[in-house]
């Protein structure tokens, strides 16, 4: 097999996910690992939308909210299996992204940022206020996925933390694989092209509005699935999952690691998920930290940490 950047990224990811548990001092770290993977999945969607297509969404947490509450509500109200609820949430997110994106993405400029911001706030308001359905700000219980029991019957007995660590890890590997496939395909190349020069992209026949819409829909599905996984592993969810701060967090993770790179997105998600866990002071000043990270990255490492380091290494190699 040829060692393309794609296979290197995937290989590194598999090895990291498989071997990290060796160094875990306690079972608690499985939980942090699973959280990192969930965030990294959502941020991979941001890489597709922002890093490649050059579009900004400030309401992506809204899609995470849809994915999360689909898992909370659909099994109870419609008797759907939680696994199917994940798919349902992703489908609703995709349709909503299409409906919001279609009129907006025909316009030139950063209208998507504004429209998605409004959309995110709206979703968050509905989740907070429709108490009859969502139980409001106090949150709601989420059904058990049930896969761990199936594995146990099959002879694979994992603790709850272990199960979610490996399950989310595998979903992340899958998500990264899809994104990396896309990157070097006609669609991914076209996304990156229109980011570079919209007018040139059009002259070579790229339907710019349609491509941006595809990127928005795909990234919405990533966020939705991440929201579902969060709800399922916590067995509980609050409307905070759809809140504005969560949207900002996703963008900051992407920017920190390198918004154009899947490996960078995962790195950024890891750092900003770990920080508040390791240093509890950060939890209190989360908004401050996110803001500072954004500013510092923009000043010192415009491309984000991972691409900047790679460039340094390559530069030395030449």
């Amino acid at each position: 097999m040829r060692l393309t950047p794609k296979s290197v990224t995937l290989l590194a990811l598999v090895v990291l996910i498989a071997l990290s548990p060796i160094f875990f001092p306690s079972g608690f770290y499985y939980r942090i690992g699973a959280l990192i993977f969930v965030n990294a999945l959502a941020v991979t969607g941001i890489v597709i939308l922002t890093g490649w297509a050059g579009q900004i969404s400030l309401g992506h947490a809204g899609f995470a909210g849809i994915g999360a509450y689909a898992c909370a509500l659909a099994p109870v109200h419609w008797g759907i299996h939680p696994a199917l609820a994940v798919v349902l949430g992703a489908a609703i997110s995709a349709v909503l992204a299409w409906l919001v994106g279609r009129p907006i993405l025909r316009l030139k400029g950063y209208y998507l940022a504004v429209a998605s911001l409004g959309m995110g706030i709206l979703i968050s308001m509905v989740l907070n206020n429709e108490r009859e359905l969502t139980r409001g700000p106090d949150g709601i219980d989420v059904a058990e996925l049930g896969l761990r029991g199936v594995l146990k019957d099959a002879g694979l007995d994992l603790s709850n933390g272990q199960f979610w660590y490996f399950f989310c890890g595998i979903v992340l590997i899958l998500g990264a694989w899809l994104a990396l496939n896309l990157r070097d395909s006609a669609t991914g190349r076209a996304l990156r092209a229109l980011h570079g020069s919209e007018v040139a992209a059009k002259t070579v026949g790229m339907d710019v509005a349609r491509l941006k819409l595809q990127a928005f829909v795909i990234s919405a599905v990533y966020a939705s699935v991440a929201g579902s996984l969060l709800a399922l592993q916590n067995k509980f969810i609050t409307p905070d999952v759809a809140g504005f701060m969560h949207s900002v967090e996703m963008v900051t993770m992407a920017v920190l690691g390198g918004v154009g790179s899947v490996a960078g997105a995962i790195f950024g998600a890891a750092v900003l998920t770990l920080l508040p866990q390791v240093l509890t002071v950060f939890a209190e000043y989360e908004q401050l930290v996110l803001g500072a990270v954004m500013v510092l990255v923009m000043i010192f490492l415009r491309e984000g940490v991972v691409p900047s380091i790679l460039r340094k290494i390559r530069g030395r190699g030449e």
Binding site: A186, R189, A190, R192, A193, G196, T203
Partner: peptide
Amino acid sequence: QVFQSMTVLENTIAGYHLQESG
């Protein structure tokens, strides 16, 4: 109007978009 951050090869492949995209 080139795609600055893409490689020279990728820039040229972009010209095949209509023939290439599925």
